[in-house]
């Protein structure tokens, strides 16, 4: 019965295609392939969709071919082909909600597939434990996640990145013990013994030092983080803040200006830079940055408010009181 329906649809489609003079031959084949994909005939559809990729004309058909290609590639467990279709779709339809929605699902499914494969092929590996720890962390199961990270270290004490993850986990706990910062600091220091090039560990150690107002130590760590990763905005920001804390506003200006170049939309960067200019006696520059701070803040808040409104519906009208309103 299903086959009959598909055949009928295909005939109708071909009939329409033939009737339309402007329709080119590759487009007819692509239309056919998209219809096959849409009706679940992926095996037959996929070779033609592959051929059609990049050749078809017309917005609607491109969309159909791309979406069909992603669907059939995923059904065939062909991750790289699915990604090729997705990349093409995102290029052809930038910022398109339907395509972005599809992308988020496909990447999520691919992530699941990869983790299943990891589990199936290397069940006892440290990577499985690391992945499990990360999953537990996102679920808010802090203690279980920490246990998993420690199990990884028990198996491979020199594994890079694990002390760093443990340190971050400790700092993320909602009800941390009083000495949590000391515990975390030790983890980051251990990380640097294993991997001195970990910019993240240097950054967090800088932040911990900054919060404790140990300015020279903070400046040292932040400086290292910026050298290890020249695009690390937060490290430049931290360096600027630490230099301000150390009462060196003139020196704070350069890293903060770099942070501003890297992330002009960040209101915190503008505020700190304004503070540095102000304290360095450059009032006009400070005023300019304070205005940029407000503009960046308004933009960020506007975006965040718009998202909240769109996602949650904003607010809900409730019934007014039966009696009189406020006098």
């Amino acid at each position: 019965m299903r086959k009959l329906v598909v055949t009928a649809l295909l005939s109708a489609s071909l009939g329409m295609a033939q009737a339309a003079r402007s329709v080119t031959l590759p487009n007819v084949a692509a239309e056919h392939a998209a219809l096959l994909a849409d009706t679940g005939h992926c095996q037959e559809a996929l070779p033609q969709l592959n051929k059609a990729l990049g050749r078809v004309q017309g917005t609607d058909l491109k969309r159909k071919v791309g979406i069909g290609g992603v669907k059939c590639s995923m059904a065939a467990h062909d991750a790289s082909r699915a990604v090729s279709f997705l990349v093409w779709l995102n290029r052809e339809f930038p910022h398109d909600p339907e395509i972005l929605y599809l992308s988020s699902h496909v990447y999520s499914d691919l992530s699941l597939l990869a983790s299943k494969e990891l589990l199936a092929t290397a069940p006892g590996s440290v990577q499985v434990r690391e992945l499990n720890a990360e999953a537990l962390e996102t679920m808010g199961k802090w203690k279980d996640a920490a246990d998993e990270y420690r199990a990884v270290l028990a198996k491979d004490p020199q594994m890079p990145g694990i002390h760093y993850r443990l340190g971050r986990l400790l700092l993320s706990e909602p009800d941390p013990p009083p000495d949590v910062k000391d515990q975390a600091r030790r983890e980051f220091e251990e990380e640097l013994k294993i991997d001195g090039s970990n910019a993240g560990a240097n950054f967090v150690l800088g932040e911990l030092a900054r919060q404790a107002e140990k300015w020279p130590e903070a400046i040292d760590y932040f400086s290292r983080a910026t050298k290890l990763d020249a695009s690390f905005v937060d490290a430049y920001l931290g360096l600027g803040r630490a230099l301000l804390g150390a009462d060196k506003p003139e020196q704070a200006i350069a890293p903060l200006e770099t942070a501003e170049k890297l992330q002009a939309e960040n209101p915190v960067v503008h505020f700190q830079l304004a503070t540095a200019y102000r304290r360095a006696g450059r009032k006009a520059d400070a005023d300019r940055e304070f205005i940029a701070h407000r503009e960046a803040s308004q933009k960020a808040n506007q975006t965040s408010d718009e998202i909240k409104k769109q996602v949650s519906g904003g607010t809900l009208e409730a019934a007014p009181p039966a009696e009189k309103p406020p006098q």
Binding site: V268, H270, T275, A286, N301
Partner: peptide, 14 residues
Amino acid sequence: ALTTGIALTANGNA
């Protein structure tokens, strides 16, 4: 307020 540094928080929030 803006140029005195108190209009918003350092994080840019009202």
